[in-house]
Every structure is written in C-alpha cells, then in structure tokens.
Design a binder for these strands. Structure first.
Lengths: 194, 194
DNA sequence: AAATATATTGAGATAGTCTCAAGTTAAGCA
DNA sequence: TGCTTAACTTGAGACTATCTCAATATATTT
C-alpha cells in the first residue's frame, strides 16, 4: 500500500526522477549532519543541480521534509495499528512511544517541525502528522481503557510528549533521555492520589 | 546586589549608553514578537542605529540574549534560594519549576537557547544558566531528602525537564501545558513500584 | 578649544531564499 | 530516424540576513 516517490499525477521524466531522488538523498545527508535547517542551496549543490531544480521539485522546506519522512510516518502509523494486537496495552503504548521518539529525533530540529505541522494545516507535513497522532490515539485509548494510563491524557498531549522527549534527547545524553522517558511513563500512570 | 547594564569596565559614553538601552528595548520587542531568531538587522533598524553599532555592543546573538535575560536569570536563582525556606520542599520545587517554565517560555526559541547554553561553555549565557541549574539543584535535593521526589532525578534532568515543558508550551495551548506539567510532577514522585 | 579616547557609520564580502524567462532535453509520434 | 512539444533545468537577479572594518563623528577630558 505504500508507494515511494513524488505522488506523480503522470509519470515523471527520467531526468526529473533522477534529480528528485538525488536531491532526496543529499537532503537526507545534509539534514542528518546539520539538522532540518540545513542550507537548501547546499543540498542542491551536493546533488549537482541548480537550486531552481530543487525548488521546482520541493517548493518549500516542509515539502522536502514531507517527501523524506513520508514512508517513515506511514510506517509509524502502521506500527501503532499492529501494536493494537499486543497483549499488554501499556507495554504496547510504551513501545510505540519509543518508536515515535526515535522517529522525531532523527534530525535536529525535526521535533519542532513536527509540532508546527500538526497545528498548521497548510504544512505539507500536516496530513502525515495527523495520521500519526490518530494512530497513537487508538493505542492511548486502549491503555486508558485497561486502566494503565491516566484518563485525563489526550492524544495531542501524547503527541506533544513524544516530541518534547525527542527535543530533549537532541540536547543531551542518551542516559538522560532514557531517564526522562521513565519519568514521563510514570507520570502517565493513573495517579495514586484522589 | 543586582546591577542592570553592560558590565562596564569604565563608564560608557552617554550616546553609547543610550544606544545600548535602545537596542535592548527593541530586541525585547522583536524577540517577543518573532522569537529569538529575529533579524538583528531589523532590531538595529528599529533602534535607529546602524547594524555595526548593534554588533559592537553585542558581538553575538547570545550576548544580546544574555544582556536581556541577566536580571531575570539572577532573579530566578534568587527565587530558588528563597524557596529553600518554604516549609514544604515539594511545593517549593513545584513553585520554582513553574517560575522556570514561565522564564524559559518568554520568547519563542528561548528554551532551545537555554539548553544549548548549558552545554556550551563559550556561550555568553552559559554562566547564568549554570547558576540557575545550581540553584535548582538545592531545591531538588531538599525535595529528594524529604522523600517527595524520586532519587534518580539529577539537576540536569530537572533543568532539561523545565526547558522541555517550556518548549512544549510554546507550541500548544495553556491547558495542555498545564496538563503536561501535572504529568511531569507525578513522574518525578518516588515510584510506587519496587 | 584642542586633544583623545570612545562610538557610530555604512559599504562590502559572503551567504541564503525564492522566482522566472530563457534554454535544454526526453518522450512520443510521423 | 528525425521532428515536435511538453516537461524539465538553468542561473542570473531581487531580496534579506550576518558580520567586519576603515573612515568618520562625537563625547569627554585637560
């Protein structure tokens, strides 16, 4: 069900396809090295095309990010659906949260983009983010129904939490990231107090 | 004990002082409106000086931010010391966390700068951030000693947590921010489980 | 009213974003 | 095969931003 590529109305010309792929590959490398605010000028240079070509394929930085992340976002949503079959609702939720954090921590600045995109309907990433949020919602609701997670937590809360943990992870050590995740998990438990 | 101003070795010339203050005021306005990544070009324009003047007063964006935040950071550290006298160690910690979050959420992008600065010793903000972290550490340790907070949480964890909550608050509604704070507070409780 | 230390200026080097008219090239058809 | 045309690429150009520094201007001191 997943297709890779630029959602072509008609088939792309061979040179266009080549450039498109090359741009994606170089963007991935640049983002991995310098974060999502990397120079697009530089991406085009590395891909060996004029910057106008980059802009014709990807009108905005978000569009480029969307193309880079599309498959992963779909995979993340799909993972959520699979985890609905996991026998332990709480463990399933935690496993998915880990996957979400790893996803959002892929590039520096990505978590911030993912947060912006869920609010901004004009963002090319919006739909994908929305799909991820919704997929997570099912898992969250199941865990809540099982009494494993506090009932006042909403899906947007959970989405934000995952991104916040990814953001925090960008800035510090893996150990601290792991500890903060532990705190978050405990914080989501139904409160001991009335 | 607090002095406002550019930590002058000798007294500044009157025109320099005037420009310095004007630049700070316009930077505050610009940062409030557009976040800490505002155009410095624009700040200089709004202050009615050439951009070279801005750079001569504030060699880097961090230096400008430091000048803007200095008093507030000192106040935040001072608040932490005062709260050591609060009868309830846990309440004191929570009250201070709220103050810290409000502080770090003052400008869009500020939490990210505050995280960068605690790591980067060459940052003009580093010392102030360090002071805040240390002040918070006392409060945290007292709450831990009182058995109100889990003992595996470190001061850097707490610092990161506050900034992460401020970051999350930048992106969403006050209600969600409040809920996430609740989760964080509960997550910091000594765990119910072994 | 100099002299001098201190500030300000703004052009210039560099770099990035984004657009678009002109040029190039792949694909399909005769 | 060569022509046609729609699809694609190009790179200069209009902006904006960061940061530097020699020339200039101004406050303060004597």
């Amino acid at each position: 069900m997943t297709t890779t590529g630029p959602a072509p109305r008609r088939r792309m010309r061979a040179d266009a396809r080549r450039n498109y792929e090359r741009l994606l590959a170089e963007a991935a490398a640049a983002f991995a090295e310098h974060g999502v605010e990397s120079s697009l000028e530089d991406v085009a240079r590395r891909a060996g095309v004029a910057n106008g070509t980059l802009y014709s394929h990807f009108p905005t930085r978000q569009a480029l990010l969307e193309a880079l992340m599309r498959d992963r976002m779909e995979a993340l949503a799909s993972t959520a659906r699979d985890l609905l079959d996991h026998p332990d609702a709480h463990e399933a939720l935690i496993a998915w949260a880990r996957a979400g954090i790893a996803h959002a921590a892929m590039y520096r600045g990505l978590a911030t983009s993912l947060m912006r995109s869920i609010e901004d309907e004009t963002s090319e990433l919006h739909a994908a983010c929305q799909a991820v949020l919704t997929a997570g919602e099912r898992l969250l609701e199941r865990a809540q129904a099982a009494g494993a997670v506090r009932s006042d937590a909403t899906a947007p809360d959970f989405y934000t939490l995952i991104n916040a943990l990814a953001w925090a992870g960008e800035q510090t050590t893996p150990e601290q990231g792991e500890r903060l995740l532990t705190f978050a998990i405990d914080g989501l438990r139904p409160s001991a107090r009335p």
